[in-house]
Simulated assay, not measured.
Amino acid sequence: MTVLTIHEQQEIDRANQEGKQPIVFVHGLYLLASSWENWRVFFEEQGYVTLAPGWPDDPETVAEANDDPEVFANKRIKQVTEHYAQAIGQLKRKPVIVGHSFGGLIAQQLADEGLSAVTVAIDPAGFRGVLPVPLSELKSGAPVLSNPANYHRAVTLTYEQFRYGFTNALSEEEAHQLYDRYAVPGSGTPVFQAAAANLNPWTEDQVNTRNPERGPLLLIAGEKDHTVPLAVVKAAYQLQKHNPAVTQFREFAGRGHSLTIDHGWRAVAEIALAFIAEQLQISQ
């Protein structure tokens, strides 16, 4: 079991004291919890209380992360999911869970465990049973997958790699700004786990899409996403829509993998908010 940081414990305590509907944000690879800063302000203004735990051992800042990249190494999907489950288990109210990229996969796994009141998975990494592997996804994963030794390493994306995987739909100026502000090293392990998911029956990269305990789910995809291409999210939706709970899909035209942190983040957040508010109202 991983140890929650003092800051994470303080956020849990604040959520329990305020008694509002909590929203837990789950970030993906190459970003920190700080990547949700705009979303947290937005949702708190709407009357929610928000938490953004990091992955196990995450540094607090981008500067700290880049100074000690190996702190990210060897983080497995199951380990990260259990870390968030541990935090959620201390909340007095079942939270909404919003995740991006690998965080979107983890959000679905947490929902599969019955831990989510409503789930929003944005550009979520694929899971076992999701079959499309577009060329852009292979190219985005190449900085990790090109060297088997990266399974046990932390990998730092160059600006050019971040530009292709995250900010391909943005101007050069904004792409540089986002890279400097948010980009951090990421564990190679989950990338290899995802790449082999359909070959490994025991993979940690799987979701029981028919689990009635999952609750309402909104899947969001960016049309121009290279890291988790539109076809991957659509394939996940085709599997998830067999669940007895509400399952919806939304595509954002012209948007890439950076859609949660770039200048258009608010449009995505507003769609997520509308779905969350509607589903919470239905459940009351």
Rank of each mutant, 00 (worst) to 15 (best):
E137Q: 15
T50E: 01
K75Y: 02
F249K: 08
A63R: 06
G188A: 11
A272K: 02
V80D: 06
V233K: 02
F102T: 14
Q193G: 11
F42S: 02
V233M: 09
A197R: 15
F162G: 02
A245L: 07
E44C: 10
V120P: 04
F43T: 00
I261K: 03
K139I: 15
T158C: 04
A269C: 05
H100G: 02
F102H: 08
L218S: 04
I88M: 07
P56R: 04
V3D: 13
Q21N: 05
G222I: 07
W265Q: 12
I276H: 04
E278A: 11
Y164K: 05
P22N: 06
I271H: 12
S187Q: 05
T156N: 08
V3M: 13
A197T: 06
A236S: 15
L170G: 06
P148S: 11
P53Q: 00
V207M: 11
G264D: 10
E113L: 14
A52H: 02
R266M: 10
K224T: 00
R255S: 14
P124K: 03
K94I: 03
E174D: 03
E11T: 00
P134D: 13
L131M: 14
G28H: 00
E8D: 06
A277T: 15
E18F: 07
Q10S: 14
I23Q: 06
F43K: 02
S187G: 08
F162A: 07
